[in-house]
């Protein structure tokens, strides 16, 4: 029996290392085409700097907007029973089951409807602009943000909010002094993972904002454009930039969460 368990344990560890090897292997394979001169040239080019800045700005704005809506929505889904709750929870999976390209196409089609056209003419022009990039990323990451935040709020016992209210705290005061601090780790994790997903978003962005150099060229779109023009060395350089930013964000998230857990 013990031998059987030990074998199972070894097999599961091997599986975990295989997952690591798969991703590390893919990243390492990039170095076969890495040319230091091209890397330096690509990193310092005005177009790359623009893409990085655009990606960082759009992902940050999309994440902040998504969280502003996701925090109250996730709290309501976690705490209350209301008509349409089940449907709202199901729709959170929508961006996962519908491919980003389809999602982008849906947004694009919406702006060709009378309501969408009115919004573009009277409020903000989204298609083929910065607002379109933010909107595409916002729509793609919103479901993920709500799902992660709901899980974080589910972890905070309702009883603590009840106690806070018996102690004289209004629901709002109880939320800000008890619920939100206790959901802090989940909130940080949601921010960073949502941001990382927005940063790497490609399909919806391409559909809504197009691929115009120095205008709507985010990092993933820049990678697509380099590859389309058969510039493998340039593609590798941009991929390394994106991977470095993404992994740094994820490692930072893990460190912050680790500190929050042990605090």
């Amino acid at each position: 029996m013990r031998g059987c368990c030990a074998k199972g344990l070894r097999a599961s560890i091997v599986a975990a290392l295989m997952v690591l090897a798969l991703y590390v292997g893919l990243i390492v394979s990039l170095f076969w085409f890495l040319d230091p001169a091209t890397l330096k040239q690509t990193l310092l080019s005005e177009r790359t700097v623009f893409s990085v800045k655009l990606s960082l700005m759009a992902a940050t704005l999309a994440t902040v907007l998504a969280l502003l809506l996701a925090i109250p929505a996730a709290y309501a889904l976690s705490r209350y029973r209301f008509p349409g709750r089940e449907a709202a929870e199901t729709v959170l999976e929508f961006p996962i089951i519908v491919s980003p390209a389809a999602l982008g196409a849906i947004i694009l089609i919406f702006f060709n409807n009378p309501l969408g056209a009115w919004i573009q003419e009277n409020i903000v022009y989204f298609v083929f602009g910065f607002a379109g990039i933010v909107l595409a990323q916002f729509v793609t990451v919103l479901g993920l943000a709500v799902r992660m935040l709901k899980a974080a709020f589910d972890e905070v016992p309702v009883e603590l909010e009840t106690v806070a209210r018996t102690l004289g705290a209004s629901p709002r005061h109880g939320f800000f002094t008890v619920t939100l601090p206790l959901a802090k780790s989940g909130l940080i994790a949601a921010f960073i993972l949502t941001w990382a997903k927005a940063l790497g978003e490609f399909g919806a962005t391409l559909m809504v904002a197009g691929s115009m150099a120095m205008r709507t060229e985010t990092l993933p779109i820049a990678i697509f454009m380099k590859l389309s023009s058969a510039d493998i060395e340039g593609t590798v350089a941009l991929i390394l930039v994106l991977v470095t930013i993404g992994l740094t964000a994820l490692f930072t998230a893990r460190r912050i969460l680790g500190r929050a857990v042990h605090a």
Binding site: P157, T162, R165, L182
Partner: peptide, 20 residues
């Protein structure tokens, strides 16, 4: 009356102490 205006003292089974 809303909970916060009832002026009650409440000690639940799990005590409800704020861990943070």
């Amino acid at each position: 009356l809303p909970v916060e205006r009832r002026r009650l003292g409440y000690v639940p089974q799990q005590l409800g102490l704020f861990p943070h």
